[in-house]
């Protein structure tokens, strides 16, 4: 078999893709996993993982490393930090091109590209990333000792991180677009009873401004359309996640209205031989455990599909 011919190519090396790789390579199915970023996916973005059964509290980095080593120990090839530049999923033999020049073929594909934090996409957001704007409270919280900050969002992450940031900041203002929060009741109560936290509801952030660092945020009240400017030292953005399926737009694989991959009960997409797993799917609960379960089922179905051919 030529070196660029595989039985299955897994796209994405988060928990779903790594699990798929563990199962398929252990079944002696020649497997390649490719990832545009770091092996581990969103696990790398997680400081502490306390709800992965069988593993006492660990870091995302450690869990990712263990999964990667497991996959490699069964003979799985993994390429990280590459650019996915083309895919051809129709037909019996599928192909994937990386970095515009290296083409790999396989009998089956497992799409496991996961998701990413949503950006606000307002002026100034890119410019002040790392200069006052952050997406990780645990990483950057201590730069905001005794500073005044805003937290944007209304889900569990926003409210929990706002509470965590009061350890450093002197004042935390939560800005949210609705008149109620989507977060669990206990997270809302925790935030409401914290004396350092105040709320600006039914409002959108329109722009971040400043010189070399973030200095001000412009806020629009959605009910009155009134625009106000607030002086701040930092802004933490937690406005949800979106699936990494941009590459599949205008391709043959069926997506739902939110750009999530639709699969049947065998985790096969609308294209024969192309399976999908993890946060990239249209599904309700996005956790490492569910990604691992999806990866298992997708791999077992892909193995059966390959062996049937």
């Amino acid at each position: 078999m030529e070196s660029n011919q595989y039985d299955v190519i897994v796209i994405g090396a988060g928990p779903a893709g790594l699990t798929a790789g563990i199962y398929s390579s252990r079944a002696k199915i020649k497997t390649l996993i490719i990832d545009t970023g770091t092996i581990g996916g969103q696990m790398i973005l997680t400081f502490e993982i306390a709800n992965y059964p069988g593993v006492e509290s660990t870091t995302g980095y450690q869990l990712a490393k263990t999964m990667k080593n497991q996959a490699k120990s069964f003979g799985c090839d993994i390429l990280s930090n590459v650019r996915l530049t083309d895919v051809e999923f129709d037909g019996k033999i599928k192909s994937v091109t990386i970095n515009e020049k290296d083409k790999y073929t396989a009998k089956a594909i497992i799409w496991a590209t996961g998701g990413r934090s949503r950006m606000l996409n307002v002026p100034g957001e890119k410019k002040f990333k790392g200069r006052g704007i952050s997406y990780c409270a645990t990483c950057d919280g201590d730069f905001f000792q005794d500073k005044e900050i805003v937290v944007i969002g209304g889900g569990n992450s926003a409210l929990e991180e706002a509470v965590a940031l009061t350890k450093y900041a002197s004042k935390v203002t939560i800005i949210h677009e609705f008149d109620h929060f989507q977060a669990f009741e206990h997270a809302v109560l925790e935030a409401k009873k914290n004396p350092k936290i105040s709320f600006i509801m039914e409002s959108h952030v329109q722009e971040f401004t400043g010189n070399t660092s973030l200095e001000k945020v412009r806020i629009k009240n959605l009910k009155t359309s009134k625009i106000t400017e607030m002086s701040i030292d930092g802004a933490f953005i937690f406005v949800g996640y979106e699936a990494n399926n941009d590459f599949l737009k205008d391709k043959e694989i069926k997506l739902n209205d939110w750009n999530e991959v639709v699969v049947n009960s065998n985790y096969q997409t609308s294209v024969e031989g192309v399976f999908a797993a993890g946060d990239a799917l249209a599904k309700r609960y996005r956790q490492i455990t569910t990604a691992v379960a999806d990866g298992t089922i997708a791999a077992l179905n892909a193995i059966e599909y390959i062996n049937r051919k």
């Binding site: 970023g37 770091t38 092996i39 581990g40 790398i44 973005l45 997680t46 400081f47 870091t59 995302g60 980095y61 990280s80 930090n81 990780c136 645990t138 990483c139 950057d140």
Partner: peptide, 11 residues
């Protein structure tokens, strides 16, 4: 060894 750092070392 935080979430924003690890991907940079890896690259």
């Amino acid at each position: 060894m935080g979430p924003m750092c690890v991907p940079v070392y890896d690259a």
